[in-house]
Design a protein around this nucleic acid. Structure first.
Lengths: 134, 134
DNA sequence: TAACTGTATTATAATGACTAATACAGTTAG
DNA sequence: CTAACTGTATTAGTCATTATAATACAGTTA
């Protein structure tokens, strides 16, 4: 489900957060679906449970998951996500990428083509799970 | 020329790297133009010279600047930039951002509009400095 | 009851970021 | 030539963050 990249120098809990966000965003895990327990994922990745807990706590704060004591952690519905914060970060990140792409000589068309491809993929997976995303 | 953002929790040297990259990318500093000396910038930002040196060393490795002992550090020509590495990273970053944008309900048109704006700006500053970028 | 959940706490080790203080070698302007 | 500036290197020490370790408690579920 998730794999740690040792060549990535960011903190483990950040990597885990991003990987789980990715799974949610791509629709690999559906709304209200259970994600691995803190201890289970820790064992799977051979890292400390506290590190997983750290990631899950953050994800809950950002609205991506919700945790229920004695039951587990689950994917939240899209409406619970703190979109304003996410959007803010996304905006600057996206603009930065585009500037760099421009600088590196990537054509506008190529960027737009990439966007179209990704949106098409996302729409398809969204249909599979009757998700109103996109 | 550069300002430190205390609310940004990334390392100082990373911030400095990005700011200088930005200046180069946007054409605010031209090829072979001198950038502030290690000590000068350190004093300006009231941080340690070693931190600036760290940033400059990285930037040189990535091909954005070149440093000459006893003379200073200068903006490298575009051809020296390690484009393959940059492109690789850019590609995944861009794709990730687009996926997230899609997920957050941003329309394709809005992304494309942003791209157009940025490319227009960049082309203008590029014209000013007769730079063949974009 | 046993085995599983999330959650919390405390202590400790390890790593990375930053500062500080120097030092050396080379350039350049006065 | 000298003084003041450059990049570069080294060593040491501080500090914050990250990660681990070892427990503990409370609630669910088969």
């Amino acid at each position: 489900m998730i794999q740690i990249d040792l060549s990535d120098h960011r903190p483990l809990y950040e990597q885990i957060k991003d990987k789980i966000k990715e799974l949610i965003i791509t629709g690999a895990v559906a709304e209200n679906e259970k994600i691995p327990s803190v201890r289970e994922l820790a064992q799977q990745l051979t890292i400390n449970p506290n590190t997983i807990q750290h990631a899950y706590k953050d994800l809950e704060l950002e609205g991506f998951i919700y945790s229920v004591r004695a039951k587990g952690s689950f994917v939240a519905s899209a409406s619970h996500i703190k979109k304003k914060t996410q959007m803010q970060e996304l905006k600057t990140a996206f603009a930065g990428d585009v500037k760099q792409a421009c600088f590196l000589g990537v054509s506008k068309d190529e960027l737009i083509r990439t966007i179209n491809e990704i949106y098409r993929e996302q729409e398809m997976t969204a249909d599979d799970q009757s998700n109103e995303c996109c």
